[in-house]
């Protein structure tokens, strides 16, 4: 039984990682209906930025964290301006391909700049564990869980209770109508990319002690976070978190109880089953079709 709970907890920690990346997908999708396949690579870039600030320049952890998040926010805005804005409104699939291209590009460039070795940084969470009875949780995993919960609550409140959040929801509903209502649509979209990149950077920094910093980490985690977002129903913030948790727990339990090889496939099998039953995910809106 203890084994099961221990596995469950580490599954939840892993799920929070997926949820954190999925959150970035969902934010952009919510506001602009763009699916950003490069989200994992933005996370990877955030990790490299924090390595540059802390490992190379030698800043304090929290200061480096802050700088990396700000730098990624600016980077997200720039990406939106250069790549996404000109093709916004064109078929979804071409935008998806553009972000896949961006991911390719970022991965290779990061590999060329920072090398292809595993990099690591010293963080306050790198060592140390919390003990609850016989249950052991490492600090680095706990920090991910806590940060995910905080970010989810903050973003949920932001979307539902602030003026800007309402503007973003209006933009996602109907861009033209929002524009007619005096909402600065372009600025809203820029901002959403900045927030999403900042969330990705946060994930990257928190993951640095767990997965280390490597140019392919984004692809591997992004491809797992993506089913998480889909499972929760693209466009739902709590859905992203819950989807991430489901994928994380299933993956960990499958790795523990099922024969080798199931670990990587089990999340996708569950995803296919869920999509068969509910084509828009667990919490996705069921849209009425218009001709």
């Amino acid at each position: 039984m203890l084994d099961f709970i221990q596995q469950l907890v580490s599954g939840i920690a892993l799920g929070c990682v997926y949820g954190l990346i999925a959150l970035g997908f969902v934010l952009i999708y919510k506001a602009t209906e763009v699916v950003n396949f490069a989200q994992g690579d933005l996370m990877m870039l955030g990790g490299f930025f924090v390595f540059t600030f802390i490992g190379l320049i030698g800043l304090d952890y929290w200061l480096g964290f802050l700088f990396a998040v700000c730098a990624m926010a600016v980077f997200g805005m720039a990406t939106e301006r250069v790549l996404i804005r000109p093709i916004l409104g064109y078929p979804q699939f071409s935008i998806v391909m553009a972000t896949i291209g961006l991911g390719y590009f970022l991965r290779s460039i990061a590999g060329m700049i920072w090398g292809t070795d595993d990099l690591r940084i010293e963080t306050p969470f790198s060592s140390g564990v919390v003990k609850l009875g016989d249950l052991v949780i490492a600090h680095d995993k706990l920090s991910v869980i806590v940060a995910t919960v905080i970010l989810c609550v903050v973003l949920y409140a932001f979307f539902n209770f602030t003026r800007m959040g309402t503007a973003m929801r209006a933009t996602s509903e109907n861009m033209l109508a929002a524009y007619y209502m005096g909402i600065p649509v372009k600025r809203v979209v820029s901002l959403i990319w900045a927030i999403s990149a900042a969330v990705a950077a946060t994930a990257g920094v928190l993951l640095a002690p767990i997965t280390f910093i490597h140019s392919n980490v984004g692809l591997a985690l992004g491809l797992k976070a993506f089913p998480a977002a889909v499972l929760g129903g693209f466009g739902s913030i709590p859905g992203a978190l819950i989807g991430g948790l489901i994928i994380g727990v299933i993956e960990t339990l499958a790795g523990f109880y099922l024969p080798q090889g199931w670990k990587d496939v089990a999340p996708y099998i569950v995803l296919l089953i869920v999509l068969l039953v509910r084509p828009h995910g667990l919490f996705g809106p069921s849209m009425r079709k218009k001709v």
């Binding site: 790549l83 000109p86 093709i87 064109y90 071409s94 935008i95 391909m97 553009a98 896949i100 291209g101 961006l102 991911g103 390719y104 590009f105 970022l106 991965r107 290779s108 460039i109 590999g111 060329m112 292809t116 140019s215």
Partner: peptide, 24 residues
């Protein structure tokens, strides 16, 4: 730069983005 490991990927990525932006 030409023999750097990831150059091919970077060029692939650029090609995809350029085609979608300028030659849809």
């Amino acid at each position: 730069i030409g023999s750097a490991a990831g150059l091919k990927g970077a060029i692939y990525g650029l090609i995809i983005m350029m085609f979608i932006l300028f030659e849809p």
